[in-house]
């Protein structure tokens, strides 16, 4: 009888494990969507850095010195932080900007076709001091570089 209870316990536990596993798979599903050039919307709603990186296929991105990030070291106003990403790499198909500490870290994904230079510049909101991670995809491989930006006044609150 005791053994039976134990077994039932294990079954319940493994079912919970499966459910959790299914939950963890969500970013992967997003990635499948996004890389087809389809709906990326869900990736921008992810609330943590690791999931955001996975969603853009950059979970295993290698750090690269060939990615240039032009951004201020100190941003007085977190509502408007100018960021420029560029690289001399060949065959760049994607440039992404991820702000690790933002409520939704994925900020922008630029998809480049032939003819587009490997450069993208925009202005980002930053809630607080955070790393700005630049992800460059070239030849089906992802590379990353990061720079810390200190924020004096956050740009996400009300």
């Amino acid at each position: 009888m005791k053994r039976r209870t134990f077994l039932q316990g294990t079954l319940t536990a493994s079912a919970a494990g499966l459910a959790a596993g299914a939950g963890l798979l969500t970013p992967g599903a997003v990635m499948a969507d996004g890389h087809g050039g389809g709906d990326m919307a869900a990736a921008f709603k992810l609330d943590n850095y690791a999931a955001a990186m996975e969603a853009i296929g950059a979970k295993d991105a290698a750090e690269s010195g060939d990615i240039k990030i032009k951004a201020p070291e100190i941003a007085e106003n977190g509502a408007v932080v100018p960021v420029t990403i560029s690289t001399e790499m060949e065959g760049v198909t994607q440039i992404a900007m991820v702000v690790t500490e933002n409520p939704t870290p994925l900020a922008a994904v630029f998809n480049m076709t032939e003819g587009a230079q490997a450069m993208a510049s925009t202005r980002l909101k930053m809630g607080k001091t955070s790393d700005m991670v630049a992800v460059v995809t070239a030849g089906d491989k992802s590379f990353m570089a990061k720079q810390e930006i200190k924020v004096t006044i956050g740009g996400c609150g009300g």
Binding site: V109, N111, Q117, S121, R123, K125
Partner: peptide
């Protein structure tokens, strides 16, 4: 030539610069 997906972290009245 370029398509971009953005989230809410882009600043108000967005600025964009690219080269093609």
């Amino acid at each position: 030539v370029i398509t971009a997906n953005w989230g809410a972290s882009i600043s108000k009245n967005p600025y964009l610069s690219v080269e093609v």
